[in-house]
Computed example of a mutant assay.
Amino acid sequence: MIGRDRPAESSISVPARRTLAARLDWNLVRTYRVVAEECHLSRAAERLFVTQPAVSQAIKRLQTQLGYTLIRRRGPRISLTPAGEEVYRIARAVFADMSSLEMPIEGVAEQVVGRVKLLSVSRVHSVAYNEFLIDFHRRHPRIELEVEIMRGHDVLMAVSQNTASMGIGLCRVDTPPIERRLLIPQRYALFCGPPHRLFEAADIDIAALRHEDLVTFIGDQLGDTLSPLTLFRENHGFQGRLAASSSNLEEVCRLIMCGYGIGFLPEHAFRREVSLGMLRKLPPEAGLADVDIQLLWHRERPMRPAESLFRDELLTAFGPARAEDDRV
């Protein structure tokens, strides 16, 4: 176990309590928040783009600074101590407040000034979305836009926990307290790459796919954002082994193109690769499941003027007609 038991309240002097905030490394608190959300050191390291030893060392240092144990190790997974649960609650609230900070700047000629941080899944292919970004920047040049690419699961978690103002991601069902609006309809289909034995095959029957090796997304499991794919796989009796996986859409595509197995991809995002002969679409011709891209935000989170403007204008730009155009 890392660290030591929490000392009695009376053993912590008042001056020590007063100086804790001044000497505390808030980068360590940020790392701990991600660890607490993932309950898994490797996944936390992947999300933070650092190594697992770096995450473990950060937790050790934070426990040393605080003076009590935050986590318990159980193999690759972790659990939070009672003190750890309380620190996580405080850290989540602190970072929710910090993420909504905005430097007050005097407007110029009544222009809206501010910053919008947008979480997004990768490969958001949409002519309408590109046109919106061009037009929005032309009309609001003093709004800074920061886009952070994340896994669909992480976008959903960040918005639901009120640590981000909005995100573009996957959310199939109503998930309080998240508001969601359809942006880009997308249908997933099965694909294989040139090295795969089915790439040149004729008249492929879906039954022939049941024992093929699979390339999947990490987190493609029942109840997750991509669960329709898993449901289809199970309903049609797929029994192939998992040959490769990634949390990144580009890497899933690469592994399929390199012949590791057949895999699920959004059709509209990979039309170019199909036309260039880098991918082949497999049965069923109609595709597998709709996993639409949604605009997500927390219904109880107050938004700054720049954030509200971006959200409202994006929703206005994406009426039903524009969404149908992207499905074609």
Rank of each mutant, 00 (worst) to 15 (best):
T69K: 12
L48D: 04
R89F: 05
E324L: 14
C192V: 00
T175Q: 10
D312R: 04
A58H: 05
M98K: 13
T230Q: 13
R61H: 07
A96Y: 03
V121W: 07
A83Y: 08
P266A: 01
R197A: 14
F270G: 02
R197D: 06
D290S: 07
L295K: 05
F132G: 03
L295T: 02
E300M: 10
R115W: 09
R89S: 14
M257E: 12
L156K: 11
R89W: 06
F49T: 11
A269P: 00
L226T: 03
P104V: 03
I105S: 13
F132Y: 05
P302K: 04
V173Y: 13
A269G: 12
D220S: 05
V116S: 06
E200S: 10
E251T: 11
D154V: 12
S126G: 01
L296S: 02
Y188G: 00
P185K: 06
L209P: 01
Q57M: 08
R61I: 08
R151E: 13
A54R: 13
Q161A: 13
E131Q: 13
C192L: 07
M166D: 03
M303A: 12
I71M: 03
S100P: 07
E110P: 05
P195R: 01
A286F: 07
E313L: 14
L231S: 09
A286V: 12
S42I: 14
V127L: 15
S10N: 15
R301E: 05
E200R: 00
A321I: 13
D174M: 10
R43M: 13
K281D: 03
